[in-house]
Design a binder for these strands. Sequence first.
RNA 1: GCUGAUGUGGCUCAAUGGCAGAGCAUCUCACUCGUAAUGAGAAGGUUGUGGGUUCGAUUCCCACCAUCAGCUCCA
Length: 585
Amino acid sequence: MSEENLYTFENEGYRKTYWHTCSHVLAQAMKRLHPEVKLAIGPSIDNGFYYDFDTPEPFTEGQLEELEAEMRKICKEKLKLERFELPRAEAIAFMEEKGEPFKVELIHDLPEDAVISFYKQGEFTDLCAGPHLDSTGRIKGNAIKLTACNAAYWRGDSSRETLQRIYGIAFPKKDELDEYLAKIEEAKKRDHRRLGKELGLFMLRDEGPGFPFFLPKGMTLKNTLLDYWRKVHKKYGYVEISTPIMLDRQLWERSGHWDHYKNNMYTTVIDEVDFAVKPMNCPGGMLVYASEPHSYRELPLRVGEIGLVHRHELSGALHGLFRVRCFNQDDAHVFMTREQMQDVIQETVRLFDEVYSTFGLSYTIELSTMPEDHIGTVEEWERNQDILKAAITAMGKDFVINEGDGAFYGPKLDFHLADSLGRTWQCGTIQLDSQLPERFELEYTGEDGQKHRPVMIHRVVLGSIERFIGVITEHFAGAFPAWLAPVQVKVLPVTDRAEGYAETVSAQLDALGFRVEVDGRNEKIGKKIREATLEKVPYMLVVGDRDIENGTVSVRHRSGEDLGAMSLDQFAALLGDEVKEMTIK
RNA sequence: GCUGAUGUGGCUCAAUGGCAGAGCAUCUCACUCGUAAUGAGAAGGUUGUGGGUUCGAUUCCCACCAUCAGCUCCA
């Protein structure tokens, strides 16, 4: 990398430094306008920066503008940022004198041998490891935007003080800021909650917070997605089962879910016995495996389940289809011998590759390691983590480590999908587990005639069908590819003389397996086209007197492209080709 | 769950301490029309729920519910 490149905004290190200095400018502006406010912390983040403040009164969005104005002033003042260090005791005394209790706490918690540094700009000094720009004059004042103010807990701990977090974004050029804000607007237009309503996919009601209702179009989408899922899984050798939604509490105690997950589980009593609604499908899957003896010849045994699970999520965490209290996992458990682990993991990653590429979604992989709350020995965990690493490394794939974020029973690979706006969503996961087979005493008979314990993976590709529908709704901005679109073709008669013809065309396409509707309303063709386009139906077939006479359909794509008149056979071949590309034989 | 904001016909949004309005959608009628909105009319609301203040509350106050932005958590 050239020296010069280090100072461009595309350079992540420079960008973060720029935003970090912005956060100091924000804190300085806050102190100037509201000296009574206490400072917490103010880092840069992936998309800008924030600063947490302890304010006597909650901050409101209306107050952001005066802060921005003060920030612009500070930039104009071109204040030099100067770094200095203090010994621990002096550093504490310094912040105590300034009346900054959060800073004092931070210094107290720094390791014994830590260098304690400060950055000073004009009258403002902050505890900070740096680095920073050399002057507030480096920041383009009119390309700063404070985007939100919200609550956040001190140190992310819900038992501690609630602070006011102010978020901001900044760029070296005003154009770049405008471009960024336009992108945010675009994301809002794609919001799956809005599109879900506009396109009639799903709804949420006060009567069932976090429990989505699927409407006819959304149900078609969901079923199409599941048809595809089943075809792919069949190709990879999976069988499918379905296990009960509610099972005896003792089963959950045995699986460990009761100990580790009971706060999120819905429970009930049936004939004086405690039952729990499943938050995961695994225990049911264990019972199915354990219900009959198995031979090594059957392994790896791939058992899929579209399982409806319920989890009691905090009310404030609910968010459209992204975070719900009941959803379908495209779950599967693969039982195998230890020797098969690496192959099975790689085969699973290949399946993931096939599915994600179908939707044009790229991904990054995270390896989540042993959490504090876990079962099994450290040695077992490390062994399993190494197998996961080896499997993906051998496939030439990169990963980052997400320390301590594994499932309680084993380490996992998480697949974070990037959508068309570059936002990421965790969907797929492959979790390696040697604990549940132990707890459920699963066995298979080996070549040697002896009983052995299998190991297993838990895996989901789409994750939650509901969340995945939310993700692809935003990814495609509601304009689903033809194979997925709830309605693939809309036949639009120009006048009611063409209605009979339109019905015939529709019936023929329907017989070929296409999803087709006729707009037979007494409206002008322009209006029908407008509405079908807004519904994002891939193809419109305009049919009028000319078409009746020539036996054609006039094809228009939702993009606005006029494909002209063609025979119905020609159109069916065209659509058939488009749809075939994306589906499995 | 926590902090803040919000809640008005199916949808998007007005308005007001004194009879709650518009556009779209719906229904009826007319028009029969060739590539992004034809016209006219009708119907549709206990203003999230429950209390309180007031002569009078949709408006002000309280509680609850839900939603939104975050925090925490997560598929």
